[in-house]
Design a protein around this nucleic acid. Structure first.
Lengths: 139, 139
DNA sequence: CCTTGACCTCAAGTCAGCTTGAAGTGACAG
DNA sequence: CTGTCACTTCAAGCTGACTTGAGGTCAAGG
């Protein structure tokens, strides 16, 4: 398999080298060795990085993701955990959909008083159960 | 209008008093005065907090949200901003939907090698364009 | 009068996921 | 042999949204 230096991995993955070092430190990826000081990565790291990206997009923490790889390096996720996260995503998607509709409504409705509009009040009433999404990542 | 102390607002809104003080400091809400040391809030603050919750769920920062209220205290959001955020949410929802499907697939597929499954590989291939959602908030 | 308890302020701490900066090393070009 | 330059390490800093802790104030009850 082809060997890549950190710059090549950065280029192919779109991640900065600093992130790759950080991921290695966190045990998410591993370099296959060194060429002098320099890390050497196996090509397979790219697939692993893609898997990590999916995990992150799903809302898993880096620690969660690290635990999904067996000591052998193969992904071995707990199916129950995946299902639970999928359910969580369903709830999040429902929330975001409602909020998106609310935003579009507020943008379209010319009245200064969204506060009186039933559509909008419905969303406000549900606001208490909303989860905030936090910051979306770079890119 | 009824006047509420911070504990009453906390109880009705579900937010801790520390958060309410923080929001006031950030200019998101205002107390109508003091009763000795103690903050006094107008009932209307509850609606405002609901609005803030929706904004947060939409992914606006507290600063963004603060800017959406005119100096008069009335919400005066920029419609273009709302629309842009709605579009962003559409993209996020699409991502999350794909990821959710990927998770369910991975949970269901008994093969040790999701990596060979076309469904899964499709998601992996798209991984580069995924935005990570960041941490969902308390509750 | 004294305690209790709810509120207050202000500074500092927390968390996740990186980024940045200073200072060092090693391979290869000239 | 000497640069140069891409890489390295390690510690510290950053962002956003809060939380926590120490120490202070004040009204009411016993």
């Amino acid at each position: 398999m082809a060997e890549l230096d950190i710059t090549a991995v950065a280029r192919s993955s779109g991640l900065p080298a600093s992130t790759l070092r950080y991921y290695e430190e966190r045990g998410l990826i591993a370099s296959t060795g060194r060429n002098g000081l320099k890390r050497v990565f196996d090509e397979g790291v790219l697939e692993r990085l893609a898997l990590i990206a999916v995990g992150r997009a799903a809302g898993f923490t880096l620690d969660d993701i690290a635990r999904m790889f067996g000591p052998d390096g193969r992904p071995a996720p707990d199916r129950a955990v995946l299902t639970a996260k999928a359910d969580e995503l369903d709830a999040t998607i429902a929330d975001l959909t409602a909020v998106r509709d609310g935003l579009r409504h507020a943008a379209a409705c010319p009245a200064p008083s969204h506060l009186e509009c039933p559509t909008f009040r419905g969303i406000l009433a549900a606001a208490g159960t909303l989860r905030a999404p936090g910051k979306r990542v770079r890119r």
